[in-house]
Amino acid sequence: MKVLKSLGIDAGSTTLKIVGLDEERQIVFSIVEEPDPKIEEQVDALLREIGTRYDTASAKVVATGYGSNLLRADEKITEISCHARGIYEYFKTGGTAVDIGGQDNKVMLISENGKVIDFMMNDKCASGTGRFLENTAWRLKIPIEKMADLALKSDGEVPISSTCAVFAESEVISQLSRGHKLAHVIKGLHRAMVKRIGGMIYAIGIRPPLMLSGGVAKNRMVVQMIEEETGETVLLPEDPQIIGAYGAAVLGL
């Protein structure tokens, strides 16, 4: 039975992520699930199941994310520290890390030795977060994973001026009712979201390289537009969604 040294749990607002590390700091497994309302029970069940497959007796459990309050963990660390550590551990370099999550965007400046020098998060508004795209995808009955494809294939773009996740939805409907093509509108929606993220990156001051994490980083249109917006080449982990949980697990080692 493989021995786990550390378990990182990222109980986010939109997804629950768990990563297990062995003593060589290698990722043994990762889990991404939708969170249940009773997240503590969901995590307990998952940990029990993990315990049947791996030796977790000596594993330290580190939790992060908005849902971490109720979780039983050896340590609770904020998402900023976890994402920053996750991205630093992954790319082994300092720079600017951008995490685009379900309801939170975080921009972190990481020093050469992995310390967080500065950070910024969206405070009271979900503009520019995953929810921005999700709301419209749901309204248009398009699977979220198809949004990027539609935008990438689009031969045009309709500007979406609203930065509000709720109002953008009605703006999209309004643009469609004026006869604009769906793909053009979807591409415009991506642009509006990226402009908002770009604003945060500039506000904190970009230091290359630019590294992305979070579920939305799986959207290729978003990544491409961030590169266009900033003029920087983006470093993207293989699975950007688990970086927070991975960082939490690394901090537990």
Binding site: Y66, I77, T78, E79, I80, S81, K115, V116, I117, D118, F119, M121, D123, K124
Partner: peptide, 14 residues
């Protein structure tokens, strides 16, 4: 509140 606490804690960690 949740956001504020999370930022303050991250600030302390930083």
């Amino acid at each position: 509140g949740e956001q504020a606490v999370s930022r303050l804690k991250a600030f302390v960690e930083m």
